[in-house]
Every structure is written in structure tokens, then in C-alpha cells.
């Protein structure tokens, strides 16, 4: 087990290193740099001034040197300064990370509750109208672009019904900041969570069906246990194992979705920041963000694997 863990950790490190090289290379290949994007189209600045700015930002050194230098500092948590805002990138990311985590966490909770709930119902009532309805909804959510859903949500629940704020994370001078935040979280959280909800519904349904038809369930039923007890105690517990993994492995999708949803709802998290950074060609920030997000994903898949090995004794390691 320990050997496996070490192996798994090393493997994660290799991935991160690879991603860092990949991201750095991409940034190198891109046309234009921060100096170009800093200069607004209505201004004219002489090429000499631009050269001087490039020197100031250290953009004139060869790429490998900059990579090694960057990586050396990144390992110590120092990602340098954002070229656009001149703030330390670590501060920017630490500012934004909690905001994104709130959104992703909220979406996660919503989808787990809704997804597993409807999945169980659909599985238990297989082939009933409720099963079809759930399946239809699950498919529908997977088929509508997230941004479009978000815009409809804003229109219906914010503009028309005025139940929730249309954007942002807080109201100036709110009395109860916690409730205010929760109020702001509902629309983006639900919109972001719908895709995962749909996926979880389908996984729960098929996974539970598989378990329900297995021999030991038949045995359990034969023992005369009540159907509800059978489903919850034996069925769901076994079906949950792969579902936990699905959740962990779906995280990249959730984070990807957050880019769009954060943009639609003006949620100032990492996703929103990614888009801004990409548009501004803020390369140090782009590199740091890509790496930070990958760390989150790699870590969650690591945790999923470990959790998995703990709950499922059937998995053998070392092969």
C-alpha cells in the first residue's frame, strides 16, 4: 500500500511537471505579449519604448532560462507578478481560490444530492414514467449549452421574478454576509451543477441497477429483508463506490464549466480570471492558473484513488 502511494505520488508529480512544460511551451509559441496588449489601440508608442518595457519585464531572455527560473520559484509557491495588475500571482490566486471553491463546492453538493437522489428513484422505479422523466431531464441538461442555460436562469429568476441577484458574490452593505453570499450562490451554483447532476443521475441509475440485479442482492432479498433496507443498506452502499470516483474524476469538467458559468454570472473566481488572463495575454498568470487548476485536479484524483483503495478491497495494487 505504501509502495503504491509513493508510486502514485511520483506519477502525479510527473504529470504536473509535464503540464508545466506544456503550458510554458504554449505560451512561448503564442503571438504577442503583455507589452503588446498593454498598449491600447488608440495610443501610439514607439518601438523603442516597447523594447524597454520588454526588458523591464524580463521578456528578452531565452525561453529555457525563463522556464527553469519560473519553475524554481513556482515550487516555492512564488509565481511572480501578474504582468497586467503587477500584484503577486500567489495573492491573486489565493484571493480568488476561495471564491471559486465556494461555487464549485456548492454546485457539487447540489448535484450530489439531486443526482444521487433522482438516480436512485429512477433505478428503483426502472421503466416507470418517473424513470423516463428523469432520464429525459438528465439528457436534456447534457444537451443545452451551459451559458445559454445561465442566461435563461438570469432572465427568469433574476430579471423577471427578482428572486436572486443576477451576478456577483455580494451586495454592498449586506447585513448578513453569509446569507447574502448564499443568495448569490444559488443561480450560478445550480446552473454549474446541472451537468454533473445529470451525469450522476445516469451513473447512479446504471450502477445501482447493476448492483440490484446481482446475486448478493437476490440473497439479501431471499433473507426476507424489506426492499427499502435492501436497497439502502446493500445496494446503494455498493453502488456508491464508483459514484465517488465519478465525482472526483468529473472535477475537471466542473472546473471547466466554471469558466463559462463564472463569466455569465460575473463570479470573480479562477475561471473568470482565466478568461481575463487569456484575453490580456497575462502569461505568468496563465501559466500559474493552468498549473494551479491542474494541481487541484491531480490531487482530487489522487484522493479518489486512495479513497477507492480503502473502500473497495477488490482492488489489488502493485500491478
Amino acid at each position: 500500500m505504501r509502495k503504491y502511494l509513493i508510486q502514485r505520488l511520483l506519477h502525479s508529480l510527473v504529470i504536473l511537471l509535464g503540464v508545466s512544460v506544456l503550458v510554458f511551451t504554449l505560451v512561448e509559441l503564442a503571438p504577442g505579449d503583455i507589452v503588446d496588449s498593454m498598449i491600447s489601440p488608440e495610443m501610439f508608442v514607439t518601438p523603442e519604448v516597447k523594447e524597454q518595457l520588454r526588458r523591464e519585464y524580463g521578456l528578452d531572455e531565452p525561453a529555457p532560462i525563463r522556464y527553469v527560473r519560473w519553475l524554481g520559484r513556482a515550487v516555492q509557491g512564488d509565481f511572480g507578478y501578474s504582468l497586467a495588475s503587477r500584484r503577486p500571482i500567489r495573492d491573486i490566486i489565493l484571493d480568488r481560490l476561495p471564491i471559486s471553491l465556494q461555487l464549485v463546492g456548492f454546485a457539487l453538493v447540489i448535484s450530489v444530492v439531486l443526482g444521487i437522489g433522482t438516480g436512485v428513484i429512477a433505478a428503483v422505479k426502472q421503466y416507470s414514467w418517473i424513470d423516463y422523466l428523469v432520464t429525459l431531464f438528465a439528457f436534456s441538461w447534457l444537451s443545452v449549452p451551459g451559458f445559454f442555460l445561465g442566461m435563461l436562469m438570469i432572465y427568469i429568476f433574476a430579471v423577471r421574478l427578482n428572486w436572486f441577484p443576477a451576478f456577483g458574490t455580494s451586495t454592498a452593505g449586506a447585513e448578513n454576509p453569509f446569507l447574502d453570499r448564499l443568495h448569490h450562490l444559488v443561480l450560478p451554483g445550480v446552473t454549474l451543477g446541472l451537468e454533473l447532476t445529470a451525469a450522476l443521475t445516469r451513473y447512479t441509475r446504471s450502477s445501482l441497477l447493476e448492483v440490484l440485479h446481482s446475486d448478493y442482492m437476490t440473497t439479501a432479498r431471499a433473507k426476507g429483508l424489506r426492499e427499502r433496507v435492501v436497497i439502502v443498506r446493500h445496494g446503494l452502499r455498493n453502488a456508491l463506490i464508483p459514484i465517488i470516483t465519478v465525482i472526483a474524476l468529473r472535477l475537471p469538467y466542473l472546473i471547466s464549466g466554471a469558466v463559462v458559468i463564472e463569466t455569465v454570472f460575473q463570479w470573480p473566481g479562477l475561471g473568470f480570471l482565466t478568461l481575463t488572463a487569456a484575453n490580456q495575454k497575462d502569461y505568468p498568470l496563465i501559466m500559474a492558473l493552468a498549473l494551479a487548476v491542474t494541481v487541484v485536479v491531480v490531487a482530487s484524483s489522487l484522493i479518489a484513488d486512495i479513497a477507492y483503495s480503502l473502500v473497495d478491497p477488490r482492488i489489488r495494487y502493485g500491478d
Binding site: 503564442a30 503571438p31 504577442g32 505579449d33 507589452v35 503588446d36 496588449s37 498598449i39 489601440p41 488608440e42 501610439f44 518601438p47 516597447k50 484575453n279 490580456q280 495575454k281
Partner: peptide
């Protein structure tokens, strides 16, 4: 122009033709 600097470079080098601006 998405800010990638291509247009800016054309402008600096005098190789541009037409730009809509304000």
C-alpha cells in the same frame, strides 16, 4: 484584433492597410 499584438506589429512596421477605429 484580440490584443495578440499582430495588428499592433503591422501598425508599427507600417505594413497595415485598413483599420476601423474611433
Amino acid at each position: 484584433d484580440d490584443g495578440s499584438g499582430v495588428r499592433q506589429r503591422e501598425f508599427d512596421e507600417g505594413t497595415w492597410h485598413l483599420i476601423y477605429g474611433s
